[in-house]
Write a protein that binds this DNA or RNA. Structure first.
Length: 583
RNA sequence: GGAGCCGUGGUGUAGCCAGGUUAACACGCCGGCCUGUCAAGCCGGAGAUCGCGGGUUCAAAUCCCGUCGGUUCCGCCA
């Protein structure tokens, strides 16, 4: 018998109406006489009452029902007696008085309980993912994901963007992540690569004159997994012609304000704040600062010039600095807490960490005896340190930035400092165009090789590559990199110069990216864009801590799928067809 | 490649550090009673050789070594 209403949408206005529901048995409460069944479908729960005085048949059918059976249920909606109203349920004011109940399909006892709080081993949940998804929190996350994706499509298409699909079977390119590789049967010995992103294709679409492109694009990277990294993930990928960074950034400000208003009822202040990469590293020690919290890093070098503490003095003499921050949310901690912080800093790779606690007009610290009174006062002034508050200091070159950033995270986790806002967006711009790769002894693109250098850096591109900044921008939310993009190079000559700095020979560049260089010779428009990690975006919007919680069928940390058993061996015949042999 | 944590009935945990009868508790499951529950209640029952392998010991869930799986982080992820 086919439903005519959803379980979760019954309200008091429906009282008196006859309805048919289809759904799963969340719970059965058998009182001997009357039996209550909580029936669940994708919309929510409804209580069905099976009273033998109303329908002996329905009651008899309900006696044989068990958890997760699929039922149809015909009956009249009625208001519950006042004392039986359940304020915890949206449908709690009404119930369906069953006149007919039938089993559509039966279920084995599930391997774990289908309920809000899971706490169940994740492998088991993944093995029975179709049961796991019946739980409201996972179901709701997938519903949110679908709505967000749909609204992104609406938003972009209303702004003139065209949704274009790009190939999944494409060409392996150097630079970047390890490719997933697919053997070609028709061309034995050759391979496709799955796309790490549609980067090159979207640039070609700009050369093709489509002006604005977007795609909800699956991407693949064969690297190790994390809570926020899966081997296949989804990007909101877009590209625009005739634009500058400002155009992309302001459009995205608008899109996120719209999405957060619509789905979370949160009014975001736009435009989002901006930091250059240099500022972000200086003030937060990382290129993806979590601006929900204070604890800005301050340079104390001038207060400590000529310090009697050898570690500080020698760092300063070597051209380094002494930087640190005041810990929020922590006053007069016990000694072991302070020692714990030093240990944490070592774990983060620091050679040391100095703590100072203000006591009266002075400082308590393992290095207090090396400090003069003036130095102590200068530190207190510069950090605005009050009674009992803690100052953390590290000395050295740029390598202390990640340590200080890590200590900032540690303090957030451990001391729960006051939070400014729930969602703190920030743009980080002007990244270095290149990094030096010590292992390979060569320059590497910080973003990707098609990122345009800033106009004022073109003169020293080859001479001082590490000083070249790029027309790039990352969107960061609560310390998570949500997306990144740039203005691209549209001048083939400049593109070749960048390849040269990267150490790609003319032949290699021609072999790997020749098609792009060629396209750039046929009237490319200036263009740029951005790509977002949709999984991370929805994760943060849903308040989850792993993107696995917003992906229907995610992989474990070793890249496996406990449900299907992938990856798995293939038949020798399949390998023979592909002309492949295991080594 | 490296470091940490976890693995005990179907599920979640306790027991492990100080080795010693029938491995405890809650939920779930099965049966009985029960007409207003919604985490229903009450009574009864079944169900685990403690991830796997080896070692130490009179004796191992417990100690040691190895291994597998999961997870978090570092490396890696343009």
């Amino acid at each position: 018998m086919k439903r005519d209403r959803w379980c979760g949408e019954l309200r008091r206005e429906d009282a008196g109406r006859e309805v048919v529901l289809n759904g799963w048995v969340q719970r059965r409460r058998d009182h001997g006489g009357v039996i209550f069944i909580d029936l669940r479908d994708v919309s929510g729960l409804a209580q069905v009452v099976c009273n033998p005085e109303v329908s002996a048949e329905a009651h008899a059918a309900a006696e044989g029902v068990r958890g997760e059976y699929v039922l149809f249920c015909r009956g009249k909606v009625r208001l519950r007696p006042e004392e039986a109203v359940n304020p915890k349920l949206p449908t709690g004011e009404v119930e369906v008085l069953a006149e007919e109940v039938g089993v559509i399909s039966r279920s084995l006892t599930p391997p774990f309980e289908i309920q809000e709080e899971s706490g169940v081993d994740e492998t088991l949940r993944l093995r029975y993912r179709y049961l796991d998804i019946r739980r409201p929190d996972l179901r709701d996350a997938l519903i949110l994901r679908s709505r967000v994706t749909g609204e992104v499509r609406n938003f972009l298409s209303s702004r003139g963007f065209l949704e274009i699909e790009t190939p999944m079977l494409t060409k392996s390119t150097p630079e970047g992540a390890r490719d997933f590789v697919v053997p070609s049967r028709l061309q034995p010995g050759k391979f496709y690569a799955l796309p790490q992103s549609p980067q090159l294709f979207k640039q070609l679409l700009m050369v093709a004159g489509l002006d604005r492109y977007y795609q909800i694009a699956r991407c693949f990277r064969d690297e190790d997994l994390r809570a926020d990294r899966q081997p296949e993930f989804t990007q909101i990928d877009l590209e625009m012609s005739f634009v500058e960074p400002e155009d992309v950034i302001s459009l995205m400000d608008e899109m996120f304000a719209h999405l957060f208003r619509l789905f979370l009822e949160v009014e975001l202040r736009v435009p989002f704040p901006r930091l250059t990469w240099r500022e972000a590293m200086e003030r937060y020690g990382t290129d993806r600062p979590d601006l929900r919290y204070g604890m800005e890093i301050v340079d104390f070098s001038s207060a400590l010039a000529g310090s009697g503490f050898k570690v500080f003095r020698s760092a300063l003499e070597a051209g380094g600095r002494v930087r640190g921050f005041k810990v929020d949310g922590l006053v007069s901690p016990p000694r072991r807490e302070l020692d714990g912080m030093v240990e944490e800093a070592r774990r983060l790779g620091a050679s040391g960490l100095v703590w100072m606690v203000r006591e009266g007009d002075g400082l308590k610290s393992p290095v207090a005896k090396f400090l003069t009174g003036e130095e102590g006062e200068a530190l207190i002034d510069a950090s605005d340190l009050r009674e009992g508050e803690v100052l953390l200091l590290a000395a050295g070159g740029e390598e202390i930035s990640p340590v200080l950033s890590g200590m900032r995270d540690h303090c957030v986790r451990r001391f729960g400092p006051p939070r400014n806002e729930k969602f703190a967006f920030v743009w980080v711009t002007d990244f270095p165009l290149f990094d030096w790769d010590e292992e390979e002894k060569r320059y590497k693109s910080n973003h990707h090789p098609f990122t345009a250098p800033s106009g004022d850096c073109l003169d020293f591109l080859e001479e001082r590559p590490l000083e070249v900044t790029s027309q790039s921008y990352d969107m960061v939310l609560n310390g998570v990199e949500l997306g990144g993009g740039s203005i691209r190079i549209h001048d083939p000559a400049l593109q070749e110069r960048v390849f040269a700095v990267l150490g790609l020979s003319r032949e290699e560049a021609e072999d790997k990216f020749g098609f792009l260089l060629e396209a750039l010779r046929y009237g490319p428009p200036p263009h740029g864009g951005i790509a977002y990690g949709l999984d991370r975006m929805v994760m943060l919007m849903a308040g989850r801590e792993s993107i696995r919680d917003v992906i229907a069928f995610p992989k474990t940390q070793s890249g496996g799928d406990p449900l299907t058993g992938a990856p798995d061996a293939v038949y020798p015949e399949q390998l023979r067809e592909l002309r492949l042999r295991p080594i």
